[in-house]
Amino acid sequence: MQTITPTQRYLKNVWDTLKTTLVGMKITGKYLLKKPITVQYPDERLPIPDRYRGIHYLEQEKCINCLACARACPIDCIEMEAVRHGKELEWVSFTLDYQKCMFCELCVYPCPKDCIHMGTEFALVTTDRSELNFDLLSFKGMAREAKIRMREADKKKAEKEAAKAAKAAAEEASGDSSDDTSDEAPGDNSGDNSGDAKE
């Protein structure tokens, strides 16, 4: 390597600046004349691939309320509720909280019936946070009555259990104070009965 004299360095700096500037301008000028590669979003949209992980959709008739997806979810954003009439399943709700959901697709794979999928819809725009708590059920007309029936079923179950517990307690001990709860339970219409029964 020969050393560069200050004069040479001075001239080299001038030359390099001019040359690399022109090289850069050539590149940018080339693109100035080319057609842009972006698309005008709301008017034209790029195709969304099949595997896109967007808002879920649920094949409700297939779902068996097994909670496998809810268990697989890292942030517990799936909640479901259904009443079982023998083999029939009456849905109350199947909610997915999109405030939390991070679209990791972990809920899709454990499903034994292959009924929850990631859709291609991605726009989540609302003016209210509570709207982000999606109900994935496609038909929910029966939901209110179903809820009442579920309450009733729960109540009956609770009564039965309470009676059983009372009986067991009566058999076991001399029967001092365990009757309190079984007395209260049937008369209580509001709130969660199963919770009351356990008290």
């Binding site: 390099d16 600046t17 690399t20 500037t21 090289v23 850069g24 590149i27 940018t28």
Partner: peptide, 10 residues
Amino acid sequence: DLLVENHIFV
């Protein structure tokens, strides 16, 4: 050419 070799950038 655009950036790495650009004299100002260097």
